[in-house]
Amino acid sequence: MTMIQDRPMAASANRETMTMATAVNRALGDAMADDDTVLVFGEDVGALGGVFRVTDGLTARFGERRCFDTPLAEAGIMGMAVGMAMNGMRPVVEMQFDAFAYPAFEQVVSHVAKMGNRTRGRVRMPIVIRIPYGGGIGGVEHHCDSSESYYVHTPGLLVVAPATPQDAYSLLRSAIRSPDPVVFLEPKKLYWAKGEVDTSLEVPIGAAHVIRAGTDATLIAYGTSVPIALAAADAAEEEGRSLQVVDLRSLTPYDDATVDAAVRSTGRAVVIAEAPGFASVSSEIAARVSERCFSWLEAPVRRVTGFDIPFAPPKLERYYLPDVDRVLDAVDTLNWDA
């Protein structure tokens, strides 16, 4: 996988500033317009337009046949998606919140993920499972989980976590085109952050990229942790330290080449993730970087993650969430006297 180059800055008819929620909505609409086997269904995605308004207007535009509310049952939604995919459709299902996807877990793990392998490639599962995920929104229990590690640990699933409106748009288009099932994790706390989107830009699944140049250490982030990494790099710069930031964008497949090249160029790495750190995506990244970049490393790879506890209640959330200070503390330990 190659590094995504900076986009050409020429003005384009396809460029527009929008929130991530709008970018996802736009990607759904464009995909539905291009391919009438693309169906959107889930809880409250129809008349309401989703609790985050991400499916707003799709039923009005494409009709009840293409975008519809189901009975309230996540296992039912996911199982129905499997059958629809077997019969020529490309379902894009919404799980209303991270923790409410758990009733669907059996269908995801036992069928969505395994059908292609079971049938020796004869039955593929072109399903996208959209999941608003993560905290930082002051949400109560079950509304703030970072559940990516469960999915990443399940062979057969592709897992994507965009951090910008552009990546949300382009990766969702790629996900809907993918013959393999994609768990598409949308960071809730970034839904209303705006950015420029070029709808003609393609971003393949599996491509990380360097989003901030730096020479002293590499911060590796994805989804909810990307803005933290960028803020930490800004703060470090004031202290005279130059931090590079890699946005993974895709967790499966994982872009070893881009991450390795980045880490080798600085010799130091910190992985940042909101999810509990034990046996997690961040563990895997740290292990891979340690194995593959050992001779380049000046210090052990550090991880800054959520604690190994259930997500904190709203009033204690700030103690749980990785923040700039915690990242800079970790950077400080990277053996600078070596």
């Binding site: 604690f307 506890i309 204690l316």
Partner: peptide, 21 residues
């Protein structure tokens, strides 16, 4: 609120990792 409550009830006995955190 005591932030250490975050670690207090997850298990009947705190794990060494939670002690550290």
């Amino acid at each position: 609120l005591d932030p250490d409550d975050l670690f207090r009830f997850v298990y009947a006995t705190r794990t060494p990792q939670l002690e550290e955190q």
